[in-house]
Design a protein around this nucleic acid. Structure first.
Lengths: 229, 229
DNA sequence: ACGAATACGTTGCAAAAACAACGCAATAAA
DNA sequence: TTTATTGCGTTGTTTTTGCAACGTATTCGT
């Protein structure tokens, strides 16, 4: 692990969810105020280990990291990838005393930026309005993630594949505002998202179609209301 | 719905997750700066409706509200209760343009406080350091919720009841730091949490015990490591 | 001490899901 | 054009689950 402090491209940062909306001119001041720490890791090097108490938000600048979980028996599960611009450990950083339940490892040679959460929310005489933007972005990201998790959970909490499908499709339909809509998944991806078997799901989908509850072609669906039955 | 603006007890507010850590003296200034709107609702009166675009965080002051979801066919599901001190619609409030996918209804005669999210993150000449505390609290709550959802999801994404149990118990064991630990659920609550049938779960648990993978008595569990097998 | 309520395990059966294997059409690559 | 590859549906078999019903020990209220 190398801790040289090299420059980051402002244009790159301004595209990230964290710094979105900051102007070219205020970004340098903001960065100075945040006092980021830059670190370089080789492939397969640990960035954060399960059990640590972190107080900084991480951002991938280049390369790629994996969020992994080791269970009681030492089995390792990959929970997520983080690509350039993505944050990691952000939930833990804002919860002092909460120990990491996951580890973060560099999947490739990777450079990251660490931002102390304290500095992100703290008052700072000269950069308050930049902080305000930063806080808005962090809150919006947390909120977005929260809603996505809540929605996924509401589908997955259904007992049968049919109910999971209805829950998901109903949600998509309401989001689209019409009973005819397109989904962003193919069958395998939808099955993975709902945590069910693809063929079983495909089967159920066709049964539902045969019963007249809906119709579809590829990713295009049409939910039938009670009126149409 | 009544919009009288009556006082709130400071001692009550200081116990809520949102205002935790504020001092008795700074709270009045902070409240003035936040310009809360107070509203009273009768039983079964809608507070927020699906499809609305909210920009304020709600807090229940007295009574109780329910977060409900209406699906494509009009079936109503109760997603959660919010009690005095609890927030609602907080994820939506920080996402401008994101339309409510749930409704909020008063389950009893209820008084709520609405706080514009803009005012919570905005710079304000005289109360910056109070805002800093508020922002910390909001972020910490979002982070806490996020972690809880992620963990629950990681259990629920397992295919079989046995795997769900292992995922949950392993997580509890790691949190406790020992292989002997207590869980905060009885069997029915655990089954509800993992979204499986109680009797099927009980059955699986006993099979796992008979196979020597773990032992338990009531809420006390002991996970056996590979060494012990 | 008594009956009621609760928590938990157990069993059998029917329903549903996972799994594996295969066929077919559409698309992409050679 | 021919040959892989991908996406999707279909079928049959095995495993797992949900569901309903019941037995028993423990707790609780009176």
């Amino acid at each position: 692990m190398n801790t040289e402090s090299l420059a980051v491209s402002y244009s790159f940062l301004r595209k990230t969810s964290l710094f979105r909306g900051t102007t070219e001119e205020e970004l340098p001041d903001l960065l100075e105020c945040l006092a980021p720490v830059y670190r370089d890791y080789t492939k397969n090097e640990w960035i954060l280990r399960q059990g640590e108490d972190v107080s900084s938000v991480g951002m991938v600048l280049s390369g790629r990291v994996q969020i992994v979980e080791e269970d009681f028996w030492g089995n390792r599960h990959i929970l997520a990838d983080a690509w350039p611009g993505d944050l990691f450990a952000e939930s833990y950083a804002f919860l002092p005393g909460e120990l990491l339940r996951v580890s973060v490892i560099a999947a490739e040679p990777t450079r990251v930026m660490l931002l102390e959460s304290r500095r992100m929310v703290q008052v700072c005489s000269n950069a308050c309005r930049f902080h305000s933007r930063l806080v808005q972005n962090v809150l919006a990201e947390a909120a977005r993630k929260n809603l996505a998790l809540t929605r996924k959970l509401s589908h997955m909490s259904k007992r049968t594949t049919r109910e999971k499908l209805f829950s998901y499709l109903s949600s998509q339909s309401l989001a689209a505002g019409t009973d005819v809509f397109e989904i962003p998944f193919n069958r395998q991806q939808l099955a993975d998202f709902l945590c069910v078997d693809r063929s079983a799901m495909s089967n159920e989908l066709c049964k539902m179609r045969d019963e007249g509850l809906l119709s579809f072609e590829r990713n295009n669906f049409h939910l039938k209301s009670k009126m149409e039955l």
